[in-house]
Simulated scan of single mutants.
Amino acid sequence: MSDDSTEEPDEDTTEEPDEDTTEATEGAAVGVKLGSTRTVLKTDDTVDKMLTCLATYEDALTGEERILYGEEAAREYPDTVRYMLRSGLPEDDENAEAAAKFFQAVVEANDVPEASGVVYAVPTMENEAGIRNLESVIESAAIGDVFTRAYPESLCGAVPVFGGVEALDEIFLSINLGSTNLEACAFRRGEALAPYATGGVTGSEVDRRIVSYIEEETQGRVNVDLTTAREYKEEHANFDAFEPFTDVIQQPGGGAHEFTIEDSVMDACDEYLDEVVDAVANEFLPELANDYMKVYQIALDETIVLTGGMACIPGLVDEFERRLSDELQRDIKADAADRPDLAAAEGAHEIASQLLKHQS
C-alpha cells in the first residue's frame, strides 16, 4: 500500500538582522582635538570649535553647581575662568577633573550618542602622566561605547591634506604649530618616528611678544592684554599682504586713544617662523637622519604637512617652504589643510569612520 502522506518542508528559521541593532553596532564617528587654547569636536553632521576653558557658578534657585564653557565662560567669568590644558595636557588630577567636566558639557551640548566610535588626537610629546590624564578625560565621557582610540595629532592633521586615510599608508613629515608646543614627527605608514616637541617655540609666545612690541611701538602709551594680542594676530597677521591697522582704547582717566599698529604683529610672527625653521632644520631633522636615514631621504622629497592654529596665518605655509628650502639648500614642498585649526579633529573623525566600517 502506498503512503499518500506528504512531508511539510522544514520551516525556515533563519533570523533577519534587526535593523536597529545593526545601526547601533555601527555607531557614530566622532573626532576630538582637546587643545590648550581651543577644542574641536567633529561628528558626522557638525564641527564645534570653542575655547578650552571652564567656569562654574551656583544656581540662584537650587544652589546646584552649574557649568559654562568656551567663549561664554571666558566672557562672563573672566575672573574665575579656568584653562585646564595650559601645557597641552591635563598635568594633574585637579586639571583632569576640570577637563572631564568641560568635555562632558561639550558632548552633551552636541548630542553625541553613546553608541559612537571616538578617535582623539594626542600631542606627540613625552609626557606619560599627561597622556594618561587625557585618556581618562575622553573615556569618562558618556560616548565611545563602540571604541575609543588615540592617534598622534600631527598624523590626524595630515589626513585632510592627503584627502583621507591614505595618509596612514604614506611616508611624510608633519609639523604641528600649536599654541603651547612646536611638534614635529616623521610617519611611516602610520608609525611615528623620531617625535620632537619643544615648548620654546609657541603661538602663545607670539602673543606675549606682540604685547611687548606694541608697548614699544607706541612709546608706552598702549598696553594690551594677551587675549587682545591673540585677536590681533588671528585677524591681522598675513605673510602675503599685511596692512597696518587702527584700534581704540579707553584711557584710565576717561576719553579714548586711537593708535595704529604697523610692525608689532608681523615682527613677532617673523621671529616665530625663523625659530620654527631653525628648530626643524637643526634639531628635528638631524635626529631623524641619525636614526632613520632612509625615511629622512624619502620624506624630504615629499610634501611636509603643517597643522595647528599658527598655520592659519595667510602666507605662512609658503613662507615656511621658502625659508626651510634656503636653510637646507634644497627644494622643499609644504602644504596645509584648508582649515589647519580644524584638521586634527577632522582627520580623527575620518579615521573613526574608517574604523567603524572595518568593524561592521
Rank of each mutant, 00 (worst) to 15 (best):
A184N: 08
D44H: 02
T14K: 14
K33G: 01
E231W: 01
F102Y: 14
R189H: 15
V317A: 04
M84G: 03
A121N: 09
E94H: 12
D240S: 09
N127G: 06
V106A: 03
T21Y: 04
R230E: 14
L355C: 02
E76K: 12
R339I: 09
V280I: 15
C312D: 11
G70E: 03
A311S: 12
G63C: 02
L328A: 02
V81I: 07
N133A: 10
E350R: 15
N181R: 08
L306T: 04
T6G: 01
E287H: 11
Y232V: 10
A184K: 11
A141Y: 01
A98V: 08
D18I: 01
L355R: 10
L85R: 01
E108H: 05
L300I: 09
I175T: 13
G254Q: 10
A105Y: 03
S325N: 02
N133E: 05
Y232N: 09
H358N: 13
A289Y: 13
R322P: 00
D45E: 05
T25E: 12
T6M: 06
Y77M: 10
S36H: 00
T62C: 06
L168T: 15
D341W: 00
E271V: 10
E16Y: 03
L41N: 00
V137M: 05
T39G: 02
R188Q: 15
L300G: 08
E76P: 00
Q250N: 12
E350G: 03
L85N: 02
Y292I: 13
R38T: 02
G163F: 10
A348Y: 04
I143V: 12
I261L: 09
A311L: 04
V265Y: 06
A311W: 07
V112Y: 06
V106E: 00
E58Y: 05
K357N: 09
I261E: 12
E58H: 06
L173N: 14
R339N: 15
V317E: 04
E108L: 07
H257Q: 15
P123L: 04
S140N: 06
A105P: 04
Y272Q: 06
R189F: 13
P195D: 10
T246M: 14
P9C: 01
M1F: 15
I332N: 10
T218Q: 11
G31P: 03
P252K: 11
A336S: 13
T303L: 11
T198V: 08
K357S: 11
V122H: 07
Y57Q: 04
V206R: 09
A28I: 08
K233Y: 04
V106F: 08
E7D: 11
E231H: 04
V280G: 07
L316Y: 00
L89W: 05
D225W: 03
E94G: 05
V107M: 12
V206S: 08
E72W: 00
G27N: 01
L226P: 00
K233I: 06
G347N: 14
E108Q: 09
G200D: 15
D326L: 08
F187L: 11
D3N: 15
D267C: 13
T228W: 02
